[in-house]
Design a protein around this nucleic acid. Structure first.
Lengths: 221, 221
DNA sequence: CGCTAATCTAGAACAAGTTTCAGACTTGCT
DNA sequence: AGCAAGTCTGAAACTTGTTCTAGATTAGCG
């Protein structure tokens, strides 16, 4: 029911209640399932990921699929974890080059956005699942959230963010998810998404430590 | 499998897709349906709104329910329109009293938030439907979005917002929806939502016309 | 090796959203 | 009033997520 492969360098949390140590064949099954999920999602988005089809494409019985992922939402959120991890390592290889934190974050997010653009159906499936998830998926959604936070903090170049900065990062994440959704459902253009990302990234300057950012003197509340 | 048979127009500004002039009994049916929907949602959230139950509670055949609302998502988004309209008129009666625009918007949103807190299940159903909606519901979701925008602009006291300000408002809406979801799924506390709302509202000052706001001299965009 | 518990498989069964259809009822029009 | 077109009803059917069951396989262990 949960990620197993934690290759070291996670930041603070251990959290991970119990990855019950999968055997090799089990790990392979899990991987086949995730692959099938992503593949089907790439074709036709959320609705195209049908549990029976995933099971068949992964060469696994339906019951087994449900043993590994207790619901379609769990499956798709896990798929998103997977993809995000890829993205994170990709981004680490070529970090953004902007002058200040806000620019780097905006650039990072737009890069991620362009990656998703290449597989809009996959993006659709993952993001819809993510925002539709209810309490039973909270731990998994939280993992995705932490991953996203890590990516953004990376782009900012921050180790020890202040509470204010964390709030700004959360707001950026909110905007990112929600803007993605409006784009995916055809209610906003890419240009609009770009503008909104840049707009929200301005918050970063607002919460920069005194002396390090563009906005040093705002009448603080 | 597709509900493309809508009266022509869609994303043009005009809205209101030609409501074909319902008779009185039809209007009454529609109202009964929306009422049943809200009632069931208040009890048990998204999953408790079951189409057969809505139909029965509204005293209407299942087929009729589907004639009025072509899917469960359509129904819940319409329910949200309804509730938002109430909220809007309520808010107009007692407008927020803050000193600057950012404060008034934050206060308005927190007031709305507290209203939703009183019916968390209803909020759950409506917001989940809203963010899960796919393209086929775009016109209706757009209506909700315009309503929300109107509420925020009201709080700001703006008639003719600049493009920058519209972007800020969109970002606020994104944050509002997404923060609501994280709260509903138990991944954020109310305090955190409040902080994030206040954080994002700072963008309003950033985009205020020169001379009218707190932030007159930021190195432009 | 042989045993036991856990896991996996195939397939049926169930639940809720959605579609369909035949027949009854309304509405609008003349 | 009388009729044609559109609407509503009740019930069954279909789809896809989810659960359950009985039997086959596999893993761990003495």
């Amino acid at each position: 029911m949960d990620r197993g492969s934690w290759n070291g360098d996670s930041m603070t949390a251990d959290a991970r209640p119990a990855a019950p140590a999968l055997t090799e064949r089990q790990e392979a099954r899990r991987r086949r399932i995730l692959h099938a999920s992503a593949q089907l999602a790439s074709r036709g988005g959320f609705e195209a990921v049908q549990m029976r089809e995933v099971a068949e494409a992964a060469g696994v019985a339906l019951g087994t699929l449900y043993r590994y992922f207790p619901s379609k939402i769990h499956l798709l959120v896990a798929t998103m974890q997977d993809q995000l991890q890829h993205l994170h390592t990709t981004l680490r290889k070529r970090p953004p080059a902007g002058d200040d934190a806000a620019q780097r974050v905006a650039e990072t997010l737009m890069r991620a956005f362009r990656a998703l653009q290449r597989e809009p159906h996959l993006a659709d499936a993952m993001v819809r699942a993510l925002t539709f998830a209810d309490r039973s998926v909270s731990p998994e959604v939280d993992t995705v959230s932490r991953l996203t936070t890590a990516i953004i903090l990376d782009a900012m170049g921050l180790e020890h963010p202040s509470p204010e900065q964390l709030s700004a990062v959360r707001v950026i994440e909110h905007t990112w998810h929600s803007a993605l959704i409006t784009w995916l459902s055809g209610r906003a253009s890419i240009a609009q998404v770009k503008i909104d990302i840049e707009t929200v990234c301005r918050l970063i300057d607002l919460t920069a430590e005194p002396g390090t950012g563009a906005a040093r003197e705002l009448d603080r509340g």
